[in-house]
């Protein structure tokens, strides 16, 4: 089993997966607790539109993904206010736009569709040195920002009005958080897959919330769950010749179901 780790591509795959496992729950915690779980989907589908745009018009697809994901999350925030009581529609509208644009731009891609497909389900075992550097850099930025803004994010997520009264720069922190979400989703889309990243944002946090009582512990357990899903997912995909990103997500879903059954029996 350990033989697989002797391959360079597998070492890179493990490193990337483990790094994303650390940052995804940092973003996922706020998204889940603010009941904005769909934001990951909307951002990743928009990132996919950016990838298609990049592939169609000769721009680096990851750069395209970052730009489109940033525009998407900022649009969600703007539309939430515009829709008022139906604010949840904002994510659906942005996701629809992302899917529509992906379909449109994909028609302009001259090469085969293989490249775009690799962004749908990720290509974690084909991570290049450039992508590894980018992922490491991103992970450091997102993790450092999440830790620096830990108490601000907690306060805003728990009670935005009280945070505002206490002097927390709510708008600025929300803006930075949205940017971090866009960066995480777009870079992770390349490695974990646009259709998979929102699962990695949500599943570890949902698992941790089945038994954790404190915010800090929920975050720590979420990171541990994400690390567990990715390492077991990658190992099993190598051993059983499965798609890595699919294996990671399915292990997450199975873990959640087991935890829910245990919880139900406790009650």
């Amino acid at each position: 089993m350990l033989e697989i780790l002797s391959y360079g591509f597998m070492q890179r795959a493990f490193l990337v997966a483990l790094l994303i496992s650390v940052i995804a729950p940092c973003i996922g915690m706020v998204i889940v607790l603010k009941r904005l779980s769909n934001i990951g989907d909307a951002a990743s589908h928009s990132a996919l539109a950016g990838v298609a745009f990049g592939l169609a018009f000769g721009i680096n697809p990851i750069a395209g993904a970052v730009i489109f994901a940033v525009i998407a999350v900022l649009s969600i925030e703007g539309l939430r206010k515009a829709f008022g009581r139906y604010s949840e529609l904002s994510t659906t509208v942005v996701m629809s736009a992302g899917v529509g644009l992906t379909a449109l731009f994909s028609g302009f891609i001259k090469s085969s569709g293989a490249n775009l497909n690799s962004f749908l389900f990720g290509s974690i075992v084909a991570v290049s040195s450039f992508e590894l550097t980018l992922t490491v850099g991103l992970c450091i930025v997102v993790f450092a920002a999440s830790m620096l803004l830990y108490k601000e994010l907690f306060f805003i997520t728990f009670d935005e009005e009280a945070a505002k009264l206490a002097g927390v720069p709510v708008k600025a922190v929300n803006f930075v958080f949205m940017l971090l979400t866009a960066f995480t989703v777009s870079i992770a889309s390349r490695t974990v897959g646009a259709l998979m990243i929102s699962s990695l944002l949500v599943l570890p946090v949902t698992c941790a919330m089945t038994f954790s009582k404190s915010y800090l512990k929920t975050l720590i357990y979420s990171i541990m769950f994400a690390l567990f899903f990715t390492s077991v997912g990658l190992a099993s995909s190598a051993a059983l010749d499965l798609k890595p990103s699919g294996a990671i997500v399915i292990i997450g879903v199975i873990t959640l179901i087991v935890l829910m059954i245990i919880n139900r029996n406790k009650k």
Binding site: F154, F155, A166, S212, S214, Y215
Partner: peptide
């Protein structure tokens, strides 16, 4: 303003207000 399923202890909620 309060989501009762939110994973936060009394201590975490109280200390958050020390922000200023």
């Amino acid at each position: 303003s309060f989501n009762s399923d939110f994973p936060a202890t009394v201590q975490e909620v109280v200390s958050a207000n020390l922000y200023s």
